[in-house]
Design a protein around this nucleic acid. Structure first.
Lengths: 114, 114
DNA sequence: ACAACGCATTGACGGTTGTCAATGGGTATG
DNA sequence: CATACCCATTGACAACCGTCAATGCGTTGT
């Protein structure tokens, strides 16, 4: 991550396209994860799930954030569609936790947060 | 990041709001960074800048991505407004690089990508 | 002076997003 | 059965986002 202090010498009309080393499919996947986390509510939900030692039920999030229940449910659905969390129903409650088979890339991003 | 396999026992009408340990201001800042990175083009731009050993000029990105020049300029502006990159003008060219005084949180997220 | 280049800004457009009210379905309790 | 609770889905709406065409401005070369 070191940067040269000097600026490159350039010639008019000649550009130097940087090499994109990330595979396109990976770009798309990473973007989806970032979009799922790029919301204050979902970010806090994801961090809470990451740090929780037990699955968290939806009513807890509804009690935590000043949002309507459908909105909380909507955010959980987005985290689920992004492949970040999984849900287990027990009685009336829905318990969420981070997916156990979380890809390494997703795990690294989650651990970089907070 | 370990999860208990068993689900908590719950009682109707009683919720257990998880403790949010992240400071609200930090949530907002992190969200802004994630929103800035949650686009395929900007993600690749940021990774390219992170891995570049020299500042990259805008025309290089314009040549790399199949997007109009205003769109590329717009994306660079968003990365700049998020505090991720800084620009130095030299002659006709604008060279971008990661901000030298990047906060630790932003740096950790960037290094978790790709 | 004039033309060419690099880049930012503006305006406009369709698509996406965050939010809520209303509704419905499933599960436990009286 | 009836009620209360938990949760997901739908529909609607304003706000935001990604993109391009057009324009403007500063710099360089002829």
């Amino acid at each position: 991550m070191a940067k040269a202090a000097t600026l490159p010498e350039r010639e008019r009309g000649v550009c130097c396209p940087p090499t994109i080393k990330v595979r396109p499919e990976r770009v798309e996947g990473t973007t989806e994860i970032l979009k799922a986390l790029a919301d204050p509510t979902r970010l806090q939900m994801a961090i809470a799930l990451r740090d929780a030692d037990q699955p968290v039920c939806v009513c807890d999030f509804t009690a935590t954030f000043d949002l309507s229940q459908p909105t909380v449910s909507h955010h959980m659905a987005r985290l689920r569609e992004a492949g970040l969390v999984e849900v287990t129903k027990k009685g009336i409650w829905s318990f969420y936790r981070l997916r156990s088979d979380l890809p390494l890339g997703a795990r690294r991003i989650l651990e970089a947060l907070g």
